[in-house]
Design a protein around this nucleic acid. Structure first.
Lengths: 189, 189
DNA sequence: TGATAACATTGATATAAGTCAATGAAAATC
DNA sequence: GATTTTCATTGACTTATATCAATGTTATCA
């Protein structure tokens, strides 16, 4: 599974990455079963995760205990709760496996060591953060400019895979609408 | 105005930054009047901007030519259209000065040169991107979990300065609601 | 200073999406 | 394979927010 990560990094910085094997050696591989919780609100986030295969739901609980889905993360993407991870403070984010999922994870200590010892590491990290910023921007734009039906259509066009592998419940919560509304939308388009 | 930027960077990486003055020397200072456009949809984004003083509106146009405010950026924050800037493709983002604004800006060539020649540069850049990711995350969470009134209250609590210096029109478009709705909310809280 | 434009408020009405409740369909579990 | 649980659909009704239109208020500028 580390080979998936190697591939991912090489795609981002070209062939010649000094210290890549050193970096990879610091990642741990772990498998989670469907519905298993990787991270729970109130705990301190210990790792940065790369998803080698599978699918994760990143969600928070509202004051009235409803799940709100911040992100749906699939294979070959990253998850980090930067705030909790960097400051070692309790997180408000929950992570659940929506399928059997294999991750490569790295601890804060190793991450920080890599940041200062492997010159290309911060550059790769910047690339990854740039991609996250980009996606986030689109997501905000969608909330600002599209209604429920249009957001759903956007998802159909840009991430059709998600609609196939994720339950309507999670999709609805990702779109910021009710399951009932999603069900109606699907038949009215 | 470069001193504001120097201060900002030192706050993020501690006192001893090799090559800081080299980096600063590559920034250009420019002043924009209120309502001046810094970047227009369709053009290629040439710079990364640091706002030394003032306030910028980052917005897009919907298909029916309505302004949608992605971000309101104040002094001591950064703006980059990473997609357009990195790939040299036409942007969809517009930037307008909401007040007289002084920016420090750096070109793609200098930015890339810094990334590979100044070892601390990618680390500082990562920090800045991390902050942007963090804010973006909150913004998405707000859209997912709060209604119009609650989003407005959030703004009152977390960015009260904005309500004082920015028009209701822009605030409403930032909150994803109509001016009329904002006006009603303000009197019903 | 007065004229014009931009911004803000308020009212009446329409519409999208939420809520509550019931039922049907599909998965998970024993 | 039957049973329980979770997930998805549908209906009737409510509520939040948008829309359209009118009017008041504050900036801008010749």
């Amino acid at each position: 599974m580390i080979s998936v990560l190697r591939e991912h990094i090489l795609n981002r910085v070209g062939d010649n990455v000094d210290g890549l094997e050193t970096v990879l050696a610091h990642f741990l591989v772990e498998t989670f079963q469907k519905n298993e919780i990787l991270q729970e609100e109130g705990t301190v986030c210990k790792y940065v995760y790369f998803i080698a295969s599978g699918c994760l739901q990143h969600f928070i609980y509202t004051p009235d205990a409803e799940e709100v889905t911040n992100e749906i993360l699939i294979e070959h993407t990253w998850y980090a709760d930067i705030q909790s991870f960097s400051n070692q403070t309790p997180t408000k984010e929950n992570i659940r496996a929506l399928e059997e999922t294999v991750v490569c994870k790295i601890t804060l200590e190793h991450f920080q060591k890599m940041m200062v010892t492997v010159p290309q590491f911060p550059i790769v990290y910047s690339r990854i953060l740039e991609e996250i910023v980009q996606q986030s921007k689109h997501r905000v734009e969608n909330f600002l400019s599209l209604d429920a039906k249009e957001r759903f259509k956007w998802l159909q066009q840009h991430r059709p895979d998600l609609l196939k592998r994720v339950s309507n419940k999670v999709i609805a919560s990702y779109l910021g609408i009710r399951e009932e509304t999603l069900s109606r939308l699907k038949h009215k388009i």
